[in-house]
Design a protein around this nucleic acid. Structure first.
Lengths: 223, 223, 223, 223
DNA sequence: GATGAATGAGCGTTCATTCAT
DNA sequence: GATGAATGAACGCTCATTCAT
């Protein structure tokens, strides 16, 4: 199920070339290149330690060019969030609409989340680590796309409660945080570890199992 | 059970005075004051946006004084981790030894964690947010005390598996991340929200409930 | 022969202007301006008391600009040495090749050295005073250009010994130090004194005379 | 004649001891210890890179104690000059009064100077290197003792001119600089080189020889 | 007198951002 | 649009000096 480190995650490394100058760049090809570079550089050094010029170099553009597409460094990170989350959320929506079963939807959610981590570890690292900072470094930024993402999860929980698949006494606001937290923490650990102690496929099963039926043994539940 | 925002988190604001200097401070009273100030300032502005002079001002000491107790700004954050986690871990150990039941231990763990969050929200914010960054900004720093904390959680899981209270098929490495992730995410949300949508007491019950028996409704488990 | 304090040593004082920015500066015109400014400021205040911002102001550039051309303050001093010594050495070489007589070469060397002092007193002050420190403040820096300068002097001595113009029993390693020391000390005194007690032309003759035939009166040499 | 690196130059390294506290310190035993330490530390690191606390540690006293004996760091260097030069000058005077011959006096001067360098290389390094800076870093300080030292040399030259031992046409102001420069440069090179390329005994002979009869070969003087 | 913890002015350096070309 | 040299505000850290003990 999970394919690790696909070619997708390999940055194109389009280096500056003084001879062959940008062959037929479409309107926001540059913008995309800059965002790709930002993902790599933020993942590698963290937002605060990343220099705008690092990103420019990685993207193969001049420093000033970044400011043609983004207001400032903060905006670069925010745009990165918005941009990538949009794609991710669309992907989730597409997959989730394939079934009416909340149990299946939960499975799909967990699997898709971890698949994204496997496919785009750098992006996962940025979203996982820097998103936390965001509420701090930009007081006004509310990460609407992240709210939307959590909203997806809440919808699944809500549906489960309504269909009776999930317990009725769950508080969806808390439950979504618990589920997201579990996913996020496992993801963070996975992307930041050199030697992976377990596959994400395995992690997906375990997370699902715990979230579905808990850690208590079945016999304990009987009496 | 949970007491919110105790006076502990209010900074004393002992300002410098040219007249009344050095009021017979015991050896590491200064060190403690600086660490307390660092917690507040890092929580309020984040590590990277916090200025060393902010912390000095908050602690009521001169900028240079901080460098008598800490090697540099990084060391201040690391020391803060080590220092506070040590106390927290000792507290956990003390409480966990009160029972042999893994189910009780899990409850105690969750409650103690959230109680800490309630008691020291600023500290919780720093530990929650900045710890993530730490692996990034200080490549060599391995956060040993955090490993120890996770170790406590793993011990509980391991015990539960051995006593039969918890499912035998759990992978303790993953399970501890799932449990910690749930706790951490709920904590992060709680400390970073102005209007608290639920009490931490409520959150503790919910987290425990989900982790213990999962989100699936009981009837679903029967067949 | 010796022309004192030419306009060369007067700094241009091109001040920053928010209106007329970057007046079509050729590639390393800025670099030259910064080095010129560094000579003035180091001469006026000494390396350690000179602030990088002083040099920037003197050069009419922003503080940060200096770091586009030099690694750091130390590098600025080292670069200054290398840069100026290169020109000086080339000048010496050119002049020395005009004759085969070691006696003439020695005269030319002394005159050229003191002429440089007269023409560029600030530079002379920096080279004279700060060069001594350099072996101290930058343990690794070996002042290769200074070695080359001493090498020139040694070549003259060596040639004199071979042509028989100079005494055969001279140790060139010591002799070059003696000659350089005499020149350097007179130069240092001259540049650091307000009211000049003698002209450098006079000093050149005296130094030559002493080095050529010594201080003993001729009659003493007879018996 | 020259004895290299005598025990004198080995610093006593009287380390602080919390048990045996300063056994019967005479009035300015501390002052002497501080000056000794300053010589070592200034020689090792240079005036500007030396920290007052380094000197205090080397002297085995508290940082603040230094300010009981010296006004500030500058004053420490000045006092060091005055103090040591006084002893050196007295030594020179004693030795120079032993003869009426200017030629002998010149020999004694050169030998005594280089003997001092051999005996107290650290002191020589400080006097040689930092003295140059002094006119720079302390505009007002005129190094009276250094003037006195040069005065000694001038007296020798003056006497030589009067007795007819030295050439009458010498300018004593310039000649003293030439002689001192030769001595100083050779000394500087000698103290700052690890592997000594020649003994100071040898250097003394060479310097004397050059200063006495010059570098020109005798036959050249005839016609 | 002696101590050394504390002070805080001062400075080297970085890097996000601008703007003339 | 694209560039990248230039800018200068900002800040971490040092260390000479002070002064309560």
């Amino acid at each position: 199920m999970f394919i690790h480190a696909p070619s997708f995650t390999q940055r194109p490394r389009r280096r500056r070339s003084r001879v062959i100058a940008t062959p037929r760049t479409d309107p926001n090809e540059k913008r995309r290149r800059i965002l790709d570079a930002a993902v790599q550089v933020f993942a590698a050094r963290g937002f605060y330690n990343a220099r705008v010029s690092d990103i420019a170099k990685e993207a193969g553009v001049a420093d000033g060019t970044i400011y043609l597409y983004f207001k400032n460094k903060d905006d670069l990170l925010i745009s990165l969030f918005e941009d990538r989350m949009e794609v991710i959320i669309a992907d989730f929506r597409r997959k989730l609409t394939g079934t009416d079963s909340a149990r299946d939807q939960l499975r799909i959610f967990v699997e898709t989340h971890l698949q994204m981590v496997a496919d785009q570890p750098s992006l996962a690292e940025v979203l996982t680590v820097e998103l936390r900072q965001s509420s701090k470094f930009m007081r006004e930024y509310k990460a609407p796309k992240f709210q939307e993402y959590l909203g997806l999860l809440e919808e699944v929980v809500e549906r489960g409660r309504q269909t009776g698949e999930f317990r009725r006494d769950l508080d969806p606001r808390i439950t979504r945080r618990v589920l997201f937290g579990a996913l996020d923490e496992v993801s963070l650990y996975w992307v930041s570890t050199r030697r992976k102690p377990y596959t994400l496929e395995r992690a997906a099963k375990e997370i699902l199992s715990i979230c579905a039926t808990g850690v208590f043994s079945a016999k304990e539940l009987k009496p």
